[in-house]
Amino acid sequence: MADVQTELRNKTVSDKPSLMNKELDHLQLCQWLTAVATDRDKQAFTRLFQFFAPKILRIAKGKFPNEAQANEVVQETMTNVWRKAHLFDQNKGAVTTWIYTVMRNVTFDMLRKVKSNKEDNLSDDIWPLAESLVTEDEVFVDHIENKKICDVIAVLPENQQQVIKGFYFNEMSQEQLAAHLNVPLGTIKSRLRLALAKLKKQLGESYD
């Protein structure tokens, strides 16, 4: 009898926590990903990153001989997770499944790239690309709090992502400015357009 009890207790001790952890994990991961999707929650994203990055890296190392490429898979996957979090539907599957699908697509894209052996060498040219992205109206909603930054980062080549990820923009978006001044976005756009046209005219005159 005593033996059975011990055995049972052992069983309880060994099985229950792992099951609970597993359930907790799913629930927790789901909450984090939802927070990223709906609130652009940076802290939740950090948690997801901490949870998935080592796992993705381990898998990627098996696919790419080069450690830098494996790291690129991690980077690329997680920026896509940030960017596409709103596409996750918890009724269709677990967070882990979804993120590994994102990773698989990234891996395939990279393998294709390696195959065609075309490296993007744009390292010195960060400015025009970042610049053209910044002017896209809908990209930044919250520069100052740095929540939308990953949207832009995600479409940059890896070497440029490295640079950009390091910082906060402290510029307002057109939406922020419109909301702040309590005028429609269209008004802000046309004011900016007119102000820039006027400025260019002034500059043109001063060059003559």
Binding site: W127, G166, F167, Y168, N170
Partner: peptide, 14 residues
């Protein structure tokens, strides 16, 4: 970094 910062301007960098 593509940041425009004039004298006495402050920005936060990670």
């Amino acid at each position: 970094l593509p940041i425009f910062l004039l004298p006495q301007g402050i920005t936060r960098i990670r």
